[in-house]
Design a protein around this nucleic acid. Sequence first.
DNA 1: GGCAAACATTTGGCATACTAACTTTTGGTT
DNA 2: AACCAAAAGTTAGTATGCCAAATGTTTGCC
Lengths: 150, 150
Amino acid sequence: MKDDRLIFLIFTAQNKLRTYLNNALVAANVRVTFVQAGILFLLKQSNVRTMSDLSQLIGVDNSTLTGLVDRLEKAGFVARQASPTDRRSLLIQVTPDGIAEGDKAKMIIKRVNEEIKIGFPPEEMEIFKGILRSFFEKFNKNSGNRNDDV
Amino acid sequence: MKDDRLIFLIFTAQNKLRTYLNNALVAANVRVTFVQAGILFLLKQSNVRTMSDLSQLIGVDNSTLTGLVDRLEKAGFVARQASPTDRRSLLIQVTPDGIAEGDKAKMIIKRVNEEIKIGFPPEEMEIFKGILRSFFEKFNKNSGNRNDDV
DNA sequence: GGCAAACATTTGGCATACTAACTTTTGGTT
DNA sequence: AACCAAAAGTTAGTATGCCAAATGTTTGCC
């Protein structure tokens, strides 16, 4: 694979991983996806989070989170409640069902996490993670914009 | 970041990269996305490819490719032609406009490719790529299925 | 006290992506 | 020749994701 196909490699590898993971969740009769499970994990840790809190923590746009919470709410795994202190905000709470489903998902996700590491020493995994983490500085919102020369 | 958040790191890093890249393309007045550009590159290399060829080469499902080619065709960058040898197949051809747009995209994509490598020695990039490549074996279609124990 | 700016959330529009189901065609088997 | 399974492509349904715009609320500044 030529060097100028690094981005292609990242995209394709992530596609494979996502499909594999979500299929594994379905096969284990888990009724949430990986991304939805991430929300349930956060809410289990601390059950009072606004939409904005959640979207920042999982790193998606607010508008994406709306849909995620819609689906979780429809399935009975979370509930939206009005914030008593700020009428703009909604507090999202996880239900007992949501906690149970999150726990089921966690087992599968942990397994796949381990599968990623198979065949690679810890030092290599650290390098891998370090490069991925560098994306957060390098590819921050709008920094790709070159409007100045237009 | 704890070890069991490796998947989250991969997902989030890829999201940042994708958003940055597509914003950079828009900022440079490129009218195709990264994924669409990949199709144009392949067709520039060899201008006779079926839908199935393309979907395998860029690593997406046939049904995903249908939409990608729809959008490229609507923009005038590719054309579908009936295959003379197999009436099930379509041959996809890139237009001169498509080649020009692909070339414009390539400049931006190359730049972002280089940006990824900044700050990391080549050996570390090789490790990074090696781990991503391992996903193709580990996470092949359906291998996440554990129906045998259900 | 009033008004503009900032903030929280949703909506609508678009682009990937997958699975499942369907149509048409092909090709091999009997 | 008839049949039937596999292949090529599309469609429909669902799930992320983004951006831009709209709505309602809050806050800070004069």
